[in-house]
Design a binder for these strands. Structure first.
Length: 958
RNA sequence: GCUCAGAUGGUGGAACUGGUAGACACGCAGGACUUAAAAUCCUGUUCCCGUUAAAGGAGUGCGGGUUCGAUUCCCGCUCUGAGUACCA
């Protein structure tokens, strides 16, 4: 029979499902291999042809690894909490769980059609209670932990409480809030239980505190930094403003250094690592305290962070100071002013009465500027003098204190020491306000701009004069430490991640409030189920949707306060909560007593290959690494990094087609459409046309007329009897009529063709537009492959004779090629090689079992359905192909007796010459020179030089 | 501005450590089969000049360099895409 892909594919998909062919075993003597895809959010639109690209690549890899003898874990699930289902619920009143369920069904149907070798018995859904029970459990573990910097790991919060009990706050080096108390053991014991809890909260790895958040009014929720792009929400593009709110946060900054270091140990694309490094933003420098002047302290408006009374002590600096962060502490003698962010908390106190009006006007002006304006307008210099002065801690020099919006409140200490000779922003500021600029390097050129050089020797710099950069930095830091005015410090740009969302469709936070303090519910009460609500909107008083849940309160089953009803936390967890640990759930998806068993985790360990898009660089991929490190610290998992190797598949863009509608003199649209090549001779407007009625840019006129009623009577101006459409690459979207659905492709060509064509399109990592033109080539290839096994009457016919040398050569070439290609994720080149191999075997009229059976195994990772069918027809038991052995490459079959050397003169190839490979370099040269054609090219002259690279090339210089 | 990735026929792309540029496929042109069409098969297809065939020249974004030899390595530039942005 001819190649009937529909019957074949249906049959084998059914077989795999019925026999659970791809179920992975948690106990196996085989080496493990874990191949995972970024699980999808099941949107209402279903899959388009771009979505499965990465899944196909990972599936080929997973199937290949099975053939190579690995026990492969290749699971799939759904990231099913999220905003779109909730937005839909708000509009229609439909419960998000129902839409989510429907969407998952669509996704599953579409995925099944493509023939993936997923182990569906391990499917996870983040919105399912038996899954989010464990997300809540991890949250509780984080709440119960603090980060001990001395041990460089997370520890149980009880160890911190014990330390406070014994030693007070002394000797604790922890990741914590900024304002923690200093107290003795006796102080601690004297604290009320609430006071103790309040203090512990400042150390917990997930904590509640008043913080400035990205508030998106249109979405009614806060957003994490990575969910905000240029002042607008990443989803929906709504404006985002800064707002102070009581919020749950994750103390990811505790792990900043480990997150940075870990990047060097994993095999990820360099650009992606770079993005994470930038996001973490480590800078090494020093913090320096600029003391407030005593003159000021006795005057109006003086105050300090600690204790203003000590200012009169005459120390000059000491208790009252401005702290700055700098990466160039060596330039401290070039400081000519200090600048605070306008939002700095000490600004109002440090403004003198004379400057009050100016400063307040400036603050009002900067407040008006939106975040966007402030970013866009980096050229204009603006600021205001506070009237106050600070003292340089190393030479006591009196320095003006300014405010300016080029200093950001959220970075470092919100204050900078300005060195106009070395920093361009400080330079412009100094020029604009006529502040002094002092050179500090002998070779510095500061005539037109700042010169940040580290070369040369210091001048105007007190005790470091004449020194070089390295020794000067060390000397300054030593001196600062000696006088107690500063120390070496590392600063990170990364902030703690906001962990609450004022939304409905997310994991409830397992916390209730008693005396205004958060408490965990008991572990036995997990999962804390998402309650039913009448509407999915915030309440009239602005509380999150969960406040609408009737009768939703926490009651203590025992102890103090028993029977009393406490209110639950009303915000839910953000979208990234469920995706920050899901690879562990796949290891042991149905465990009811743990998130995954110890045995399962110790067997599977980590993800060997993770494939997904680069858009998750600073979100999911960073949070996942953070949670993984935490779980490692508390002894629940074994690897420091969760994803050993990661590959970003490129985005599949849309390829839009256009028709050109003629417009008349007055600019009114007509009913006539001009072909692309002639459109410049007319006045036209381009209109998107459905790419599914266009083939090789030629418009199907009948389909076009039927497409929409307005085109029913359309007329055309054709070129060469055809209507040619215009082309443009855009995002794939419904409104551009360029969406290609995999279902349609499978209907016409089958899943095997789709799989191979998606790979054939180009390198996996590269972004490229989808173009269905060309899919015929892959389809023809599969038919040609099928034909190798069949005679002219389409009867299955294979011969048992021994293969010829040529046949073995064709086979072993492809055995090696595909192996090499898959190992380096170059799937597109494999497809070409398969075509070459089948073309060769077709030319050789090869139908020998010894060749074809191995071909079936090699091709089966790419085109599994057709191969299963042929495998069985070859007489093998059904279902054994997936676990067959990849054929062994034998280099002997590729050994050649001679080689057609390209003979070139001065690097230009002139001819080819067959020369036995048994000849050595010298004999080869003689062989070439003896050739009559070569002599003709040389025109009788002897070449100056002859280069012979054995088995590659002969080059003659004349 | 900074960082990264990329630029090869009409199109998607190949050429792995410097060694025959354009594999493989699409498209296009011509042919076979057919009453015809579809399907299938065969031949050609980087460009220029020339043409029965040949022979010749140019050629991997642009300009230089290293080398017997460069799509590949080095320097400078242009363009495209992505990320990031007053980070002290």
């Amino acid at each position: 029979m001819d190649y009937q892909f529909k019957d074949i594919e249906k049959k084998w998909q059914q077989f795999w499902a019925d026999h659970q062919t791809f179920k992975a075993d948690n106990l196996s003597p085989k080496p493990k291999y874990y191949v995972m895809d970024m699980f999808p959010y099941p949107s209402g639109a279903g899959l388009h042809v771009g979505h499965p690209l990465g899944y196909i690549a990972s599936d080929i890899f997973a199937r290949y690894k099975r053939l190579k003898g690995f026990n492969v874990l290749h699971p799939m699930g759904y990231d099913s909490f999220g905003l779109p289902a909730e937005q839909y619920a708000i509009q229609t009143g439909q419960h998000p769980a129902i839409t989510t369920e429907d969407n998952i069904a669509t996704y599953r149907r579409q995925l099944d059609q493509i023939g993936f070798s997923f182990d569906w018995s391990r499917e996870v859904r983040t919105s399912s209670p038996d899954y989010y029970k464990w997300t809540q459990w991890i949250f509780m573990e984080l709440f119960n932990s603090w980060y001990n910097k001395a041990a460089d790991k997370a520890e149980a919060i009880t160890t911190l409480a014990e330390h406070f009990e014994k030693h007070g706050s002394k000797g604790i080096n922890a990741a914590s809030d900024e304002e923690v108390l200093t107290f003795t053991a006796d102080d601690w014991k004297a604290f009320t239980s609430e006071e103790q809890q309040k203090e512990l909260l400042k150390y917990r790895l997930t904590y509640l505190r008043e913080s400035t958040v990205n508030w998106c009014a249109a979405l009614g929720t806060v957003l994490a930094n990575d969910e905000v792009k240029d002042g607008f929400s990443e989803r929906g593009g709504y404006p985002v403003e800064q707002k102070k709110m009581m919020q749950w946060s994750m103390r990811i900054t505790a792990y900043a250094e480990r997150l940075l270091q870990g990047l060097d140990t994993i095999d990820w694309p360099e650009p992606l690592k770079e993005m994470q490094r930038n996001w973490i933003g480590k800078s090494v420098g020093a913090s320096v305290k600029f003391g407030l002047t005593p003159t000021l302290s006795s005057g109006e408006g003086a105050n300090s962070t600690k204790d203003s009374s000590s200012l009169s002590s005459g120390e000059g600096w000491g208790e009252a100071y401005i702290e700055v962060f700098t990466t160039r502490v060596d330039t401290i003698f070039g400081v000519t002013f200090v600048v605070l962010a306008p939002e700095h908390e000490l600004v109002s106190q440090l403004t003198t009465p004379e400057q009050k009006a100016t400063v307040e006007a400036y603050i009002a002006q900067t407040k008006k500027k939106s975040e966007l304006d402030r970013m866009a307008d980096t050229k204009t210099v603006s600021g205001a003098f506070t009237g106050s002065y600070v003292l340089n801690p190393l030479n006591g020099e009196k320095i003006q204190l300014w405010i300016a919006d080029y200093v950001l409140a959220g970075y470092g200490t919100g204050a900078v020491m300005a060195v106009p000779s070395g920093d361009q922003r400080d330079y412009l500021f100094a020029k604009h306000y006529n502040l002094p600029i002092v050179p500090i390097m002998d070779i510095q050129n500061i005539e037109v701009e700042a010169d940040p050089t580290k070369e040369g020797k210091y001048i105007n710099s007190d005790f470091i004069n004449g020194l070089e950069y390295k020794e000067a930095t060390a000397a300054v830091i030593a001196k600062l430490e000696e006088v107690g005015a500063g120390k070496a410090r590392v600063n990170f740009r990364m902030r703690d991640a906001i962990f609450g969302r004022q939304r409905y469709w997310g994991e409830p936070v397992p916390v209730y409030f008693k005396d205004n303090l958060p408490h965990l519910i008991s572990e036995s009460e997990l999962p804390l189920l998402l309650p039913e609500v009448d509407k999915y909107l915030p309440t009239e008083s602005g509380e999150p949707p969960l406040a609408r849940a009737a009768d939703w309160h926490y009651t203590l089953s025992s102890g103090a306060g028993q029977g009393e009803a406490f209110s639950y936390e009303l915000s839910t967890m953000p979208g990234w909560a469920g995706s920050s640990w899901y690879w562990y759930r796949y290891m042991d998806a149905h465990n009811e007593t743990e998130f995954a068993s110890k045995e399962a985790i110790e067997y599977w360990k980590d993800v060997d290959l993770y494939i997904g898009g680069s858009e998750h660089a600073t979100g999911h991929l960073l949070y996942s690494r953070f949670w993984n490190k935490f779980l490692k610290d508390i002894g629940k998992v074994v690897e420091e990094e969760p994803f050993k190797k990661l590959i970003n598949q490129g985005m599949i863009q849309g390829r839009s087609n256009f028709v050109y509608r003629l417009v008349d003199e007055e600019g009114r649209p007509t009913n006539t459409y001009v072909s692309h090549g002639l459109k410049d001779q007319y006045k036209t407007t381009p209109l998107h046309v459905d790419v599914n009625i266009v083939t090789n840019e030629i418009l199907d006129l009948d389909k076009f007329k039927k497409w929409r009623t307005e085109y029913e009577t359309a007329e055309f101006i054709l070129e060469n009897g055809k209507y040619i459409c215009g082309v443009e690459v855009e995002k794939m979207s419904k409104s551009k009529f360029n969406v290609v659905n995999p279902d349609d492709i499978i209907e016409r060509y089958g899943a095997d063709t789709l799989r191979m064509y998606e790979m054939f399109l180009g390198p996996l990592e590269q972004s490229k537009p989808w173009n269905t033109n060309g899919i015929e080539g892959v389809f023809k290839f599969l038919r040609k492959f099928w034909r190798l096994f069949h005679n002219d009457q389409w009867e299955f016919t294979v011969a048992n004779e021994a293969p010829t040398k040529a046949e073995l050569k064709a086979l072993h070439k492809i055995i090696r090629k595909v192996e090499e290609d898959i190992e380096r994720f170059s799937f597109n080149t494999s497809v070409s090689s398969f075509m070459i191999a089948v073309n060769e075997l077709t030319d050789l009229k090869c139908n020998k079992r010894a060749i074809l059976q191995d071909m079936v195994v090699i091709l089966s990772s790419y085109a599994p359905h057709i191969c299963e069918e042929l495998w069985v027809q070859l007489g093998n038991p059904a279902g054994t192909l997936s676990y067959a052995a990849y054929p062994k490459f034998n280099p002997e079959y590729l050994i050649e007796d001679d080689f057609a050397y390209p003979i070139s003169i001065n690097g230009k190839t002139k001819m080819n010459l067959n020369i036995p490979l048994s000849l050595d370099v010298k004999d080869t040269e003689a062989f070439v020179l003896a050739n009559a054609d070569v002599q003709r090219y040389l025109d009788g002259k002897a070449p100056k030089k002859v280069i012979v690279v054995k088995g590659r090339i002969v080059n003659m210089v004349v």
